[in-house]
Design a protein around this nucleic acid. Sequence first.
DNA 1: TAAATATAGTTGACAAAAGCAACTGTATTT
DNA 2: AAATACAGTTGCTTTTGTCAACTATATTTA
Lengths: 149, 149
Amino acid sequence: MIEDKIIRIRSFNRYYTSVIGLLDKQYLNSEFSLTEARIMYELNHHPDGMTAKAIIELLDLDKGYLSRMLQSFEKRKLIEKRQSAYDKRSFYLHLSQKGSAEFSKLNNASVQQLTELLASFTEKEVNELTGHMDAIRNILEKSATKKHD
Amino acid sequence: MIEDKIIRIRSFNRYYTSVIGLLDKQYLNSEFSLTEARIMYELNHHPDGMTAKAIIELLDLDKGYLSRMLQSFEKRKLIEKRQSAYDKRSFYLHLSQKGSAEFSKLNNASVQQLTELLASFTEKEVNELTGHMDAIRNILEKSATKKHD
DNA sequence: TAAATATAGTTGACAAAAGCAACTGTATTT
DNA sequence: AAATACAGTTGCTTTTGTCAACTATATTTA
């Protein structure tokens, strides 16, 4: 029965919301908010530079909100802007060396956190876990339009 | 290699964050915030009443923040409070009839939303999806302390 | 090609969401 | 009975996010 499946999916979503929430708490200790970390992740993932527009679409942020966060990044020397020669309205954004270093710290902390969490599982369990995750993604992305890393 | 597994888990987490974020957008149209909806879900799930303390622990909310949201619920006649006879500091909280009705609306909208989303999948795919979700939960809860519905 | 329209990003003003600490009243411990 | 702990409330603040108007550039259309 489909109703039953929906109940299970919603239950999983509630459950996984709390899992993600728990993992995201690490940003409380850092000098970056979760959203800032996501922006840095995208910038790091696009070393050739990306526009504010692209970040907005990827992360579904308000452009005014993002604009201010990028200003704050600039003040902190975490990013560099380079105006596009072809479209002077837009700017290519890059992590600076400092920004890359800060991102690495965040990233390492995140890996460390998950490493500790996974320590209580067997290798077989971890393999199964990632297998199920990949499978969910494959199913959902079959119909979805959105693209991800 | 475990590093590789961690990368995949983190990738899934980023992906699933956006899935959940998309589903949660439905609350933008409603008169309830996501957090309010979660509180109502818990209240609905505990028809014998539950204390603010219990909600705080389940949803990891600040008690002051919750206190104000409950006040707003009371003003809107969505909940009823009954002081505990055994511990006059605490109150048992219930959805009122109106609160139940409002929760039902939210719930139905959520079911409807997922029904539409699942419409593009085959029954087999949906079965696999829920199977993988259950499997993830089973693995993660093996070591976890947190309990969920 | 000039006018109209669209787009990238910025800014100001504001609102919603969340966090923190002090406080009240009740319960529990010493 | 004094000290401590706890449930919930309140005042105050910060963080996060939203909206609309605006500037400068680009694109479309008449």
